[in-house]
Simulated assay, not measured.
Amino acid sequence: MKVSHYFEFEEHVTGGMAASVDHQRKMFDRVGIEYTTEPTLDADVLHLNLMGPRSVWYARRARKAGVPVVAHTHVTAEDFGDSFRFTNALARPLKPYLRRAYGLADRLVCPSEYNRDVIRGYADVPTTVVSNGVDREKLDGFESLEAEYRERYDLDPPTVFMVGHVIKRKGLETFVETAHRMPDVDFAWFGHVDRSLKGRETKRLIDEAPSNCTFTGFVDDIRGAYAAGDVFCFPTHEENEGIALLEAMAAGKPLVVRDIETFSWLEDGEECLKVGSEGGGDGAASADVTDAPGDNVEGFVDALDELRDADRRAGLGANAAARSEEFSLDAIADRYRSLYADLV
């Protein structure tokens, strides 16, 4: 079996989507799936990771040629808003475009049950849930970097941290305001800070962050983030799954997350601490990305105060690490072989 595994704009896209594609290809290698990264109909299956115009063109050709089309649903209008400059304006026209694009597939691959629920409003196409997974090998030896990265960014334990692009949708306002309320605790956000792509509000939040809140920018070795961080704080409003969260779990870090549907599979109090949003909502963003529910900053402060206790951190982290085993690449690789065999 040969798969055309195409990732449009691969040279430009970073973050979780790029990590997911990398994980997929590592899983192919584990189970012996032959693949090419070029879009071609000289394959048994065409698997498209980003439904840009070239991918849509190949999907249409594949359907005419009788080649099964798989589309990954990394992108939704719900997940697109409050990300970079102009994304809010683009989120509304994006949904009808994605409805047409995803409708060209014979099978949609969704990274989570939550994402599958969202995608049911896009296209009447069979779906299969396959986690993005966590590459545990990428984290090997992270503990040895603790002293180096704490010194580099002047961080004292217990450090509250986040990993990923610095974007508003991921709870930037909550992260910064919580740091304001906890001046004796170090906060660090490890990830790209490309100001040319940020909106005015995002830049203001970064510029007005307190002195105990560090934005590191690009980190040359991401293991350093998990070495220097003690509590993974993920106040995101909308997420398809969250690879950084899976990595933090694999590293044995306790989690504080917003209580949104995406994280319904995590057990509050045992595998994480969940914080509900103000106004009684669950914090999930709607298609109208400008109307996200209010932030419950006090709830995050209370949860982080609870995790000042080292034993509580250790217990939650150990439970998270145990749960992360089911998301290892080895644990889920066979799902792709079964998926492709079913289509072919």
Rank of each mutant, 00 (worst) to 15 (best):
F234L: 10
I243W: 03
C233I: 05
E238Q: 14
T159E: 02
A209C: 08
N212V: 06
E201T: 13
T216P: 00
V160M: 04
K138P: 00
L172G: 06
R223G: 01
L205H: 12
E208F: 11
F232Q: 01
G242A: 10
F142P: 00
W189P: 00
E208P: 11
D186E: 07
D221R: 01
S144F: 13
A248H: 05
Y149N: 11
C213T: 07
C233T: 07
L155T: 00
C213L: 08
R200P: 10
C233S: 08
I222D: 04
Y153E: 05
R150I: 10
T216R: 04
P183L: 00
D207A: 15
T174D: 15
G141D: 13
A179V: 09
R150M: 12
V163F: 01
S196T: 10
T216F: 05
E151A: 15
K170L: 11
F161W: 00
R181W: 05
K170Y: 09
R150W: 06
E208H: 12
N212A: 08
E173Y: 13
R150S: 12
A228G: 01
D207I: 09
G224K: 00
A227E: 02
A225K: 01
D221Q: 02
T216I: 02
L145P: 02
F190S: 04
T216K: 05
A228L: 02
D140A: 15
K203V: 14
K138V: 12
E177R: 14
V160N: 02
E177W: 11
E173P: 12
V193Q: 01
N240H: 15
F190H: 04
N212S: 08
T174P: 12
G199W: 06
R152S: 06
N212D: 08
N240M: 15
V219I: 04
G171I: 07
K203H: 11
G229R: 00
F142Q: 10
E201N: 11
E148V: 11
F161A: 02
Y149A: 14
D186F: 02
E238R: 11
T174C: 15
A244E: 10
P235A: 08
F190W: 05
A227T: 01
A179T: 09
E148L: 10
K168L: 14
C213D: 10
H165F: 09
L139A: 13
